[in-house]
Design a protein around this nucleic acid. Sequence first.
DNA 1: ATAATAAGTGACACAATGTCATAAGTCAAT
DNA 2: ATTGACTTATGACATTGTGTCACTTATTAT
Lengths: 204, 204
Amino acid sequence: MPKKTFFNLPDNKREKLIESAEEEFSRVPLSQASIANIVKAAGIPRGSFYQYFENKEDAFYYLLEAQTNKRKEFFIISLQKNNGDILAAIEDLFCLMLKELGEEDNLNFLKNALMNVTHEIEDVFTKIFTIKDSGKSSLIEIRNMIDKEKLNISDEKEFFHIMQILTSVTFRNLVDKYSRDISDEEALENFMIEMNLLRKGLSK
Amino acid sequence: MPKKTFFNLPDNKREKLIESAEEEFSRVPLSQASIANIVKAAGIPRGSFYQYFENKEDAFYYLLEAQTNKRKEFFIISLQKNNGDILAAIEDLFCLMLKELGEEDNLNFLKNALMNVTHEIEDVFTKIFTIKDSGKSSLIEIRNMIDKEKLNISDEKEFFHIMQILTSVTFRNLVDKYSRDISDEEALENFMIEMNLLRKGLSK
DNA sequence: ATAATAAGTGACACAATGTCATAAGTCAAT
DNA sequence: ATTGACTTATGACATTGTGTCACTTATTAT
């Protein structure tokens, strides 16, 4: 987490810093990103950066988490629309991310994150499915929104593992799209094939 | 790939270099590994390293690939034992890797690789399932060893996606074991739950 | 006004990377 | 044996990057 000085910053300065960091993390993956570039673009001295963040990673994960939170809202709405059908909701989320990744130029950020998914990064994304902090400290358990009757499970433990499987597969498909430079259509087709295999089971 | 000078090296020198590199990649993940440490341990000048490898990554992937090839043999045997049942064979492979990871000290190498899986690393591991170069240039297609009758698929394309799903899930389980520091027993139990869910399908 | 606390600053020490000019070694042909 | 073409070895160097620290400046409380 950023240090408290970061949150004490005047809005415009903080925003400029965020913007500069996003720019750098959009340019190259985390490992190649340079603090020098960030502070230069933000017009602050090097020492200040360390006043606000522990290090490069701290800044990166803060930004990634912020972006992910936006996607949570979409996911919740989609889950409601689909009457608690988790597989359908995840399909919607996959489409959203395809769309996002095609659109804005500065969303190379997401691309760079996907191309270097480590378990830490995957964990951040996975938070979409756990707990939602919607505005006024009201916590909604997404777990409870999911219609478990639609799933082929006998206990709560199996439900957890279904979520694990779904995230692994969804991720892998997103990563593939970029590492293999596949068209949106093809990526979606691949993903749907896999989702259907998951639905019906791999074994005869 | 290493440069040709690397392969021209006298055996003992090459082996010492390999050993030193493995040591360094066992100490820390790729991003933190230092060429300085490798050349120091191998007793060669810095410039020589670049005579043999393009860079750090080149050396890392070369070593990773070498290790992975060893696991291929095991996988093939296991696939035969299980009469082409791919899910059963993958379960065996998972057990093998758990065992390997528990045993030798220098197999922190594998651990460091797993904790920082990117699509490149996943791709190297995935090669286990594609083509096997067994000793005398005889190529065996693993694909053909798999009994597709046991799978719930209608075409070759779906078969490919089943492999995708299985690798994603297997990986995720291995990574989890180390990122969450789970016991072998628990890791295996989790993995088996997911494999069974995959078998029977997620949806009612 | 003064003290205390927080924030800002940039030079610095240190470590890492990849390159390059030069030295040393190998080997076949004369 | 000598030459010369080619391959390999070497380590100093330029460059870039990280995180720290002593010191300055601003802000807030008393």
